[in-house]
């Protein structure tokens, strides 16, 4: 039996053809996509650095993080997520909606790349949403 947890307000977004969700409390704001300055040597899923009103913010590509073969996001939106005192940008193709979603612990098998990043699944009327753990994502990338 999958373990059921309390419903949480979840931000739904799309990367390629898949729908993801993350806890809305971790989201500070959403801005239109802008190109980042490449950060040499960083993993491919780090698009680089962007200027957020005078502050330098690191931007990640969630699609590339989960599947290294995927073409980078070059349009759409940037979700600015907070993790402790740090802010990280996450490039996504489309921000869709905010919904109350019941979360279920995920069964194994999401693949090697997703390990530690996906914290569960949520059910929508027309499908399943993968719930991403923003804090785990950020702490895997930043030192």
């Amino acid at each position: 039996m999958p373990e059921a947890r309390a419903a949480a307000r979840t931000l739904l977004f799309r990367v390629a053809e898949r729908v993801f969700g993350c806890d809305i409390d971790a989201v500070r704001e959403i801005i239109p996509y802008r190109r980042a300055t490449r950060l040499p040597g960083a993993p491919t899923y780090v698009q680089g650095l962007i200027n957020l009103r005078g502050t330098i913010v690191t931007m990640l590509d969630l699609g590339a993080r989960l599947d290294a073969e995927r073409a980078p996001v070059r349009d759409g939106s940037i979700i600015l997520a907070t993790h402790g005192t740090r802010v990280v940008g996450i490039a996504v193709d489309e921000v869709m909606d905010v919904q109350m979603i019941n979360e279920e612990a995920i069964a194994a098998g999401e693949g090697e790349a997703a390990r530690g990043l996906v914290r569960g699944l949520g059910h929508l009327d027309d499908g399943v949403v993968v719930l991403v753990d923003i804090h785990a994502l950020v702490s895997q990338v930043l030192l």
Partner: peptide, 13 residues
């Protein structure tokens, strides 16, 4: 000069 968060594996250049 502005600081940014250190990214794992990035060059320390």
């Amino acid at each position: 000069v502005k600081q940014f968060d250190a990214v794992r594996d990035a060059r320390t250049l």
